[in-house]
Design a protein around this nucleic acid. Sequence first.
DNA 1: AAATCCATGTAATTAGTTACATGATTCG
DNA 2: CGAATCATGTAACTAATTACATGGATTT
Lengths: 204, 204
Amino acid sequence: MTAVRDPQKVSSLGYALMCLLARRDRSGYELSQFTRPPRNFLLWSAGHSQIYPELARLTKAGLVEFSAVARTNRRDKKIYSLTPKGRARLTEWVLERPRPTPFRQELALKVHANWLADPAQAALLIREQAAMAQSEIDMIAAHGRRLERRYGITFPPAADHNLFGTYANIRYAIGSRRQLIEWCEWLEGELLSVAEAPAERRPA
Amino acid sequence: MTAVRDPQKVSSLGYALMCLLARRDRSGYELSQFTRPPRNFLLWSAGHSQIYPELARLTKAGLVEFSAVARTNRRDKKIYSLTPKGRARLTEWVLERPRPTPFRQELALKVHANWLADPAQAALLIREQAAMAQSEIDMIAAHGRRLERRYGITFPPAADHNLFGTYANIRYAIGSRRQLIEWCEWLEGELLSVAEAPAERRPA
DNA sequence: AAATCCATGTAATTAGTTACATGATTCG
DNA sequence: CGAATCATGTAACTAATTACATGGATTT
């Protein structure tokens, strides 16, 4: 009675890879570039060690296939593509309700337990987070400009353009970081306001 | 050479539980209420099946301890509390850089692959997401009001108040959802603009 | 009477991370 | 000549989800 996983069931990561393959054929290595910085902020985070086995599963399920590209003195390169079956499944899936994202941010924990620490030092941590968010915005915006150049378009693209989804996700990624920065700035101000209070009025 | 995990190493979930116990002693069941809706948006998502083993690990590591409360006709209830060692560890940890949150939202994938679907139907999905975010905002705001009543305070609390971290996280949770709603509204508008275009101008 | 809450756990499986392993090419 | 990039994989482990299991008390 050892349960075996339904080989037709596709994980979120599987769909992420299929989303990319729907646009164009790619190798596992190329796919892995989308799941790590700076592109990971737009789609799905994953390491390459998760991607290769997932591609094997998708292949077994008949949702993707690959052609081996032989190369002199090197291991074969596998170029994956969506099968018609894979495209059909992906197209259905796109309109289904996404599963809710579990909320797990260490920063929230540290803010929750903030009262244990010195406010001035906590403010420093928050300032650093804001700076990181800003540099991520810069990276993402630079990536957007690269795309505009490469495809000879200007953002925003029409909503039925191939790259519209990517643009929408860039917009989201930047917007959510701006919101984070605003929050950090408010938080830093609050923390500094108690940190700056005369020492006699604060507990040792 | 089978590697065994360092019993002193604490997972993020472990710190989440310690954060809660730093405020007051609680049972495993009570802790689990914080890690699922509606409170999960403020701290850390987890199921109870993850919490009970984690409490056992923290106990073994000497970071928390419990006193069994005997109850007639019922299984003992365990009330956990932070040990001095646990409090020290938590206090150090609060000021350390949080690990980056991996980005994994199915919605982003569906938006990426949006061009495969009918824009009018995609717009519906997006509208639904915005509505969900709004009802989450309402739940979180209601939770905030409950806290104000229960502790006889008015938000915002002073930055050195016990509940300041909770308030800050409520603010973040609401702000990020507002930002999501704005994005959804923009996105819906864009999708409808191509959906409403005369049929002759769109591909079948 | 049924559903939900209180309360605590374990088992099985899937998902994700970190480390190990290999080897050519290209760039500075 | 050393580092980064291209390229593909496996092994070991940690984290998270889903399902199984139990049972009294309270609410509808």
